[in-house]
Each structure stands twice: as C-alpha cells, then as structure tokens.
Lab assay of single mutants.
Amino acid sequence: QKEELKEKAKEAVKRGNKDKARELLKRAGISEEEAKKIIKKIE
C-alpha cells in the first residue's frame, strides 16, 4: 500500500502536481518534512 502511494506520488510530481503528491505521501504515513524531501528528489 505504502509503495503504491509512493509510486502514485512520483507520477503526480512528474505531471507537475506537487500538492497531489504531498497528499498521497501523507496518506502513506509520511511526515510533511519527509514528503518535501521526497518530492525534491523526484523533481
């Protein structure tokens, strides 16, 4: 489940939808700070 949400978040970032990505990562139980780092890494 968590990995699936991370994959979806990756796709969202690639489409330029960072808010959606952050939302998905939060749903995966990832903190706001972690989510920001992950999104930065994907960009």
Rank of each mutant, 00 (worst) to 15 (best):
I30Q: 01
E7V: 06
A21C: 08
K10M: 12
D19C: 11
Q1G: 12
A35Q: 05
E23Y: 03
E11K: 06
G29W: 01
D19T: 09
K6C: 13
K10L: 10
K8I: 08
D19A: 11
K41V: 11
R27E: 14
Q1R: 12
A12Y: 13
I30Y: 15
E43H: 05
K18A: 08
A9F: 06
K37T: 10
N17E: 14
L5Y: 08
S31H: 05
A21M: 03
K36H: 13
K20N: 06
K40D: 15
K10S: 07
I38M: 09
I42V: 09
L24G: 01
L5M: 07
L5W: 10
K20P: 01
Q1I: 13
A9P: 01
K14I: 11
I38S: 01
E34Y: 04
V13N: 02
E33K: 09
K8G: 04
A9S: 02
R27L: 15
L25V: 00
K20G: 09
A21W: 05
S31L: 05
K37R: 12
K26R: 12
E32I: 07
N17R: 09
E4Q: 10
E33F: 06
V13R: 02
R22I: 15
K8C: 13
K26C: 10
Q1D: 13
E32T: 06
G16A: 03
G16Y: 03
R22N: 08
E7Y: 07
K20Q: 13
R15V: 08
R22L: 15
A28G: 05
A35K: 01
E4K: 11
K10V: 12
E32K: 07
R22Y: 15
G29M: 01
K8S: 07
A35H: 02
E33M: 07
K26L: 15
E33R: 09
K26W: 06
I39S: 01
I42D: 03
D19E: 11
E23F: 02
E32F: 07
A12F: 11
V13A: 08
A21L: 06
N17K: 07
K40S: 13
N17H: 11
K6Q: 11
A28H: 03
Q1V: 12
K6R: 10
K8M: 15
G29N: 03
E34L: 06
I38V: 04
L25G: 00
K10G: 05
I39W: 02
E32Q: 06
K41S: 13
R15G: 07
K14G: 06
K10W: 10
A28M: 07
K2L: 15
G16L: 03
R22C: 14
G29L: 00
L5T: 04
I39V: 05
R22G: 04
K18W: 13
K2R: 11
L24E: 03
I42K: 03
K36P: 01
K40M: 14
E4P: 04
E7N: 11
E7W: 08
I39H: 00
K41P: 03
L5V: 05
I38G: 01
E7I: 09
E34N: 05
V13E: 01
E33C: 07
S31D: 10
S31W: 03
K37D: 14
A21D: 01
K37C: 12
A12R: 02
K10Q: 07
E4G: 09
K10F: 11
K37N: 12
I42L: 12
E11Y: 04
E34D: 08
K26N: 08
E32Y: 07
Q1H: 12
E7D: 08
K37A: 13
E7C: 12
E43W: 08
K14E: 08
A35G: 04
G29D: 03
K8T: 04
I30N: 03
A35W: 04
K18D: 04
K26E: 11
R22M: 15
K20I: 12
A9I: 14
A35I: 15
E23T: 03
E43P: 03
A35V: 10
R27P: 02
Q1F: 14
A12H: 10
E3L: 09
I30M: 12
L25S: 00
E7S: 07
L24P: 01
A35C: 05
V13F: 08
E4T: 09
A35T: 06
R22S: 07
E7R: 12
S31Q: 05
E11P: 01
V13W: 12
K10N: 05
I42R: 01
A28R: 00
D19G: 07
K8P: 00
R15T: 10
K40I: 11
R27H: 10
V13T: 04
I42N: 03
A12E: 13
K2Q: 13
I39C: 00
K8Q: 14
K20V: 13
I38P: 00
E33T: 08
E4R: 10
A35L: 05
K40V: 09
K18I: 15
S31F: 03
I30S: 03
Q1L: 14
V13S: 02
A35P: 00
K20A: 13
K40F: 13
E3Q: 09
K36C: 09
K40T: 12
E34C: 13
I39G: 01
K26G: 05
E11D: 09
K36A: 15
R27W: 10
L5E: 03
K2S: 12
G16H: 04
E32L: 08
N17V: 02
K36F: 11
G16P: 01
E11V: 06
R15L: 11
E4S: 11
A9W: 05
K14S: 08
K18H: 12
Q1E: 12
D19I: 09
G16C: 07
E23I: 06
K18F: 15
A9Q: 01
G16E: 02
K8V: 04
E4M: 13
I39K: 00
K26F: 08
A35E: 01
S31I: 03
K40G: 09
R15P: 00
E33Q: 08
L25M: 02
K18E: 06
R15F: 07
K14L: 15
I39A: 00
R15D: 10
R27T: 09
K2D: 10
L5A: 10
S31C: 06
V13Y: 10
R15H: 11
E3I: 07
E32P: 08
I39F: 04
K20E: 15
A28D: 01
E33D: 10
